[in-house]
């Protein structure tokens, strides 16, 4: 059932696959990054490794393939850099840094890329609770970004809040790629200020050129729950969106309406709360049809969740990854 495809060197901290799953970027504790390319016989080899940052790499995110073979990486020293693989007449194939985003007073916790019609947007969330949306100005030059918006993950933007201290954040763009679709993403914090935590869907309002919260994915009693992971399921034709949100209470599956109601909000319904991981959920990943959700967690398990014909969500299988005990 399983097949080993690659071995990574000591000191690996995080990893991320590209759009077709053939390339894997691994971030190391010493600030270097390695790229593994899968070969035809489904084994893979390390095609390059370089030192990207002075301190350890915390997270790597691939850019959508329309923008080349490029990654964004977040290092522990609060810097965020973009790298792309290029080759031309004057230089051989290599990974080149094209941009760094400096932030003086807050650390980038997570970022995600979304493509809408032709433009690339990057949403980055910071340890001070701020969310910034950047837009790429030139689709062939990854060094020209413009800050499009900056806001906080709260519904009520008028009230003043204290300064939260955020440990973690999870962001997921709506994966739908239609021309007519509005850009939207869901974002939830793991912070000490309850108002910031609950996952909210932000949608770009073309008319006023601003981002608005259109749904809050938490029941009244759960709004302060720290969010560990979110994932927006691909929608291949469902009349509603499906979003998974992991909090300390478990993994909630939400159905969200496609079109706003009269008050501008999206209808939402929590259809399941799945418990299984003992402790924190690390990652949520939907498969290509949006029918199976894979989750990983601090219990060292990969759990696979599906909905049966009656609409009841259940754990279909689990993969035990705790390793050989010696």
């Amino acid at each position: 059932m399983e097949k080993e495809v690659a071995t990574v060197e000591k000191g690996a901290l995080c990893c991320s696959w590209n759009y077709c799953g053939q390339r894997l970027a691994v971030g190391f504790v010493d600030g270097s990054i390695s790229i593994h390319d899968s070969l035809d016989d489904s084994s893979s080899s390390c095609s390059s490794k370089w030192k990207a940052h002075a301190s350890s790499i915390k997270n790597i995110v691939w850019l959508p393939p329309e923008f080349g073979d490029a990654i964004a990486c977040i290092s522990a020293d609060a810097s965020l850099s973009l790298w792309e693989e290029v080759e031309d007449d004057t230089q051989p194939l290599k990974w080149k840094m094209c941009k760094t985003f400096e932030s003086s007073n807050a650390i980038v916790l997570d970022l995600q890329f979304g493509v809408y019609s032709t433009s690339l947007k990057m949403v980055a969330a910071y340890s001070d609770g701020h969310v910034k949306v950047y837009e790429l100005l030139d689709p062939l030059e990854l060094n020209k970004w413009q800050l499009q918006a900056e806001f906080q993950n709260v519904i009520d933007s008028v009230s003043r809040f204290g300064k939260p201290s955020c440990a973690n954040v999870s962001i997921a763009w709506n994966p739908r790629r239609g021309e007519s679709q509005q850009s939207s993403f869901v974002l939830g914090f793991n912070s000490d200020l309850p108002q910031f935590n609950s996952s909210k869907i932000w949608e770009f309002e073309e008319a006023h050129q601003r981002w608005l919260p259109v749904a809050e994915l938490a029941l009244p009693g759960d709004k302060g729950d720290r969010v560990h992971a979110v994932a927006w399921a691909p929608n291949i034709g469902r009349p509603y969106e499906v979003i998974a949100v992991a909090t300390c209470k478990g993994i909630a599956i939400w159905h969200v309406g496609l079109n706003p109601e009269s008050d501008g909000r999206l209808s939402k319904e929590k259809v399941a709360l799945l418990s299984g991981h003992d402790g924190e959920v690390w990652q949520l990943e939907w498969d290509m049809s949006g029918m199976t959700l894979a989750s990983t967690g601090a219990d060292g398990m990969v759990r696979l969740w599906q909905c049966n014909l009656n609409g009841v969500w259940h754990e279909q299988a689990a993969l035990e990854c705790n390793g050989m005990q010696q």
Binding site: W282, V302, A317, A318, C321
Partner: peptide, 22 residues
């Protein structure tokens, strides 16, 4: 649910597990 052990050959402890559908 059925639990399948993944024989990855890495000694315990495991620090982090990442998944991706290809």
């Amino acid at each position: 649910p059925v639990v399948y052990p993944v024989r990855h050959g890495v000694n315990a402890p495991i620090f982090r597990v990442y998944v991706s559908w290809t």
